[in-house]
Write a protein that binds this DNA or RNA. Structure first.
Length: 436
RNA sequence: UCCCCAAUAGCUCAGUCGGUAGAGCGGGUGGCUGUUAACCACCAUGUCCCUGGUUCGAGUCCGGGUUGGGGAGCCA
């Protein structure tokens, strides 16, 4: 029950079951069973109503429920923290157990659910295999990011060997943590099933305090065998635009809410992305644009340095004015598994940059040549023996292959206009916050 | 982790020059013949984040802390 507007002889009760943004108007009239009860209902209570669904004589709703009997299933008194008014997101985060009952979070989590199903539908329609990669991993070199430790050892007095913790006595008999990416395992499955994707939780123990980072988030990672970088980019574009079209047609009511309440112009922005092909720009070309820029940058620009947030925003917002793939980055600033280009100094990496957000997809063609991969791994300080199974995928039937990662929460932020990652995940985990 | 900002009623906030605290919403009571986060009238609300200092006197000024927010780095 969202609100009651009670008069002497008639009361209007707005009831919402979460299925959509709009509430059902229940009309209770003097004399019916439970009328006094209906007038006194507190916001947040749960009710059962019997009555006749009929066209509404008043503007504001097409149908209404003329109540014959109203029963309070679960009452809510005046201490209920949600009021019939707008609350700040900061306050609602402190009551994350109740915020899904609000209009705004109802819209967010319906959008999230619908998008998750659209992700599966997109890949299913294209014959991709859905693979569940492990959440607990012993890989300590999956890429960037600090690992959360997984252990059953007593933190107060762990077993020691030669002065350091003896992980051979731990549950898995080795150090383990929560995965930061399912990519490496995904590549193995691509070698068997050609086209695969993962969609699951990932974890980063980084002390990141921003509106765009969470310690636990969901990531979508497709991987295609017999594919190069540009095929990878094509898939990313098709995928991203598919999801834009999806929310416009399937979540129209909630999208209209976001457009009205969260970000003016959201619908137009998403519509444009759904309809317009994405630009592609070489990293080298992007550097040239930045060097010509008249606006001052805080961080230096030169070939070989990574692009900072301010640079990415400039390229996508000022130079291109829409989504753009930046491709072929210097190899020294990218991960060991990315395929080396023939120029000897770049790798087949791509980032999709979008206005407002910056980088939203990161991907690459993977290095399929065993000797080059081993050399880069060693150069990155990673013991090839620790990833022997990954290297073996390059020993037998190695194929060119490529994939990318999309942060699910960032996608939701982009499509809803919500500006804080903590407000698009049901129960956010960030540094010092694991309540609920 | 670094930089900046903020913290006052249940919520959102105002509080002038340092002189002992206010509004709207929400809540309560009453009214209202169909309302749309209804409307009208009345009523009640406070550890001014904590701590130390300056001062005759601190919500207000200063130091330390806590919490929250924004930005950066890292990235998705």
């Amino acid at each position: 029950m969202r609100s009651v507007r009670a008069g002497r002889d008639v009361a209007f009760v707005a009831v919402n079951d979460g299925s959509c943004l709009a509430s059902l108007q229940v009309v209770a009239e003097e004399g019916m069973e439970g009328f006094d009860q209906a007038c006194r209902l507190g916001t947040g209570s749960a009710v059962e109503v019997h009555g006749l669904l009929r066209p509404s004589p008043a503007a504001g709703q097409a149908m209404e429920l003329a109540a014959e009997r109203l029963v309070t299933i679960g009452g809510a008194d005046e201490s209920y923290p949600l009021q019939k008014k707008r609350h700040s997101f900061e306050y609602l985060r402190t009551i994350a157990h109740l915020r899904p009952r609000t209009n705004n979070f109802g819209a967010v989590f319906r959008l999230r659910s619908s998008l998750a199903q659209a992700v599966h539908r997109f890949f299913s329609e294209r014959g991709f295999l859905y693979v569940q990669t492990p959440i607990i991993t012993a890989n300590d070199c999956e890429g960037a990011g600090e690992l959360f430790r997984v252990t059953t050892l007593d933190p107060a007095s762990p077993p020691l060997a030669d002065g350091s913790v003896d992980f051979s006595a731990d549950f898995f008999a080795r150090p383990t943590g929560l995965t930061v990416s399912g990519q490496l395992e995904g590549e193995l499955f691509a070698q068997a099933f050609t086209d695969i994707y993962t969609f699951g939780p990932t974890f980063r123990a980084e002390n990141s305090n921003t509106a765009r980072h969470a310690a636990e988030f969901w990531m979508i990672e497709p991987e295609m065998a017999f594919a190069d970088l540009m095929e990878d980019a094509r898939l990313a574009e098709e995928f991203f635009r598919y999801l834009c079209s999806h929310v416009l047609s399937e979540c129209a009511e909630d999208m209209a809410f976001f457009d009205a309440q969260i970000e003016k112009g959201l619908l137009e922005r998403v519509r444009r992305v759904a309809e317009t092909p994405f630009a592609v720009m070489e990293y080298t070309e992007a550097i040239a644009h930045l060097e010509k820029a008249t606006v001052p940058f805080q961080y230096p620009v030169s070939w070989g340095l990574d692009l900072q947030s301010e640079h990415e925003r400039y390229i996508t917002e000022q130079v291109v004015g829409g989504p753009v793939f930046i491709v072929n980055y210097p190899k020294d600033i990218k991960a060991f598994y990315m395929r080396q280009n023939d120029d000897g100094r770049t790798v087949a990496a791509m980032d999709l940059l979008v206005p407002k957000v910056g980088e939203i997809i990161g991907g690459s063609q993977r290095e399929e040549r065993l000797d080059l991969l081993t050399a880069r791994m060693t150069g990155a300080g990673i013991d090839p023996a620790s990833l022997w199974w990954y290297l073996e995928s390059r020993r037998w039937g190695s194929t060119p292959h490529a994939g990318f990662g999309l942060g699910f929460e960032r996608l939701i932020m982009y499509l809803s206009g919500m500006e804080n990652i903590r407000d698009v995940i049901p129960f956010p985990r960030t540094p010092r916050h694991a309540e609920f």
